[in-house]
Simulated assay, not measured.
Amino acid sequence: MPQIPEKIHELTVGQLSARSGAAVSALHFYESKGLISSRRTAGNQRRYTRDTLRRVAFVRAAQRVGIPLATIRQALAELPEERTPTREDWARLSQAWRCELDERIAQLNRLRDHLTDCIGCGCLSLESCVLSNPDDAFGERGAGSRLLVERRR
């Protein structure tokens, strides 16, 4: 991984890409979504502050666990722009997602534990399937397959 000398306070998009491992196109996308920001030089080239490396790492880690970009953008908006975010700043943001991640883990555990049953029976019955219809939530709407009918409308 290329090192950035301490005296360099701004990075080109190529340097940011090489250092963060994110493609240039991904960095442009992140910027278009308000996840990172840059300034433009007189020659209209992007320049990123060094703390953008941490922001990109945060975005990529959050994406890997399934956090939507809109949620990531809201979290990054809470970080200070006048200084590099601290460990405490990042801890505060990630703590807010703990419940959501715990629920996703529980859903994945249910999927893992019941996937063989669904594949084994082959029916994917909305009446009894613990994956498509946990706790028979759709049974309250009446008999029959309601999801397919509702989706077609």
Rank of each mutant, 00 (worst) to 15 (best):
T12F: 00
T12A: 05
T12M: 05
G14H: 02
G14E: 07
G14I: 12
G14P: 00
Q15M: 01
L16M: 12
S17H: 10
R19G: 03
G21W: 11
A22M: 01
A23H: 09
V24R: 06
A26L: 00
A26E: 14
L27T: 08
H28C: 06
F29D: 02
Y30A: 07
Y30Q: 05
E31G: 05
S32F: 07
K33Q: 11
G34A: 12
L35F: 01
I36D: 06
S37H: 00
S37C: 03
S37E: 09
S38F: 00
S38M: 03
R39P: 00
G43V: 05
G43N: 10
N44R: 12
N44S: 06
N44V: 01
N44F: 11
Q45D: 06
R46L: 04
R47P: 01
T49H: 14
T49A: 11
R50A: 13
R50D: 01
R50G: 07
R54G: 15
R54F: 15
R55T: 01
R55M: 03
R55H: 11
V56W: 12
F58Q: 08
F58H: 11
V59R: 00
R60L: 11
A61N: 10
A61E: 04
A61P: 07
A61T: 14
Q63D: 09
R64T: 05
R64Q: 10
R64P: 03
R64F: 09
V65L: 02
G66Y: 00
I67K: 04
L69Y: 04
A70L: 08
A70R: 13
A70F: 05
T71A: 09
T71L: 04
T71F: 04
I72H: 09
I72P: 10
Q74M: 12
Q74C: 12
A77S: 14
A77E: 13
E78L: 15
L79C: 11
P80K: 03
E81N: 12
E81H: 11
E81P: 06
E81K: 14
E82Y: 09
R83K: 14
T84I: 12
T84H: 06
P85D: 04
P85C: 10
T86S: 15
T86M: 00
R87Y: 13
E88W: 04
E88T: 04
E88Y: 02
D89S: 11
A91T: 07
R92H: 15
R92D: 03
R92G: 10
S94T: 15
Q95A: 13
W97F: 13
R98H: 10
C99Y: 12
E100T: 15
E100D: 14
D102C: 04
D102S: 00
D102K: 09
E103G: 08
R104E: 08
I105A: 05
I105R: 10
A106K: 01
R110A: 13
L111P: 09
R112W: 07
D113V: 03
D113Q: 06
L115Y: 01
C118S: 05
I119Y: 11
G120H: 07
G122P: 03
S125D: 07
L126V: 06
L126P: 08
L126Y: 02
L126E: 13
E127Y: 07
S128I: 13
C129F: 02
C129K: 10
C129E: 10
C129R: 01
V130P: 15
V130K: 11
L131H: 10
S132W: 04
N133H: 08
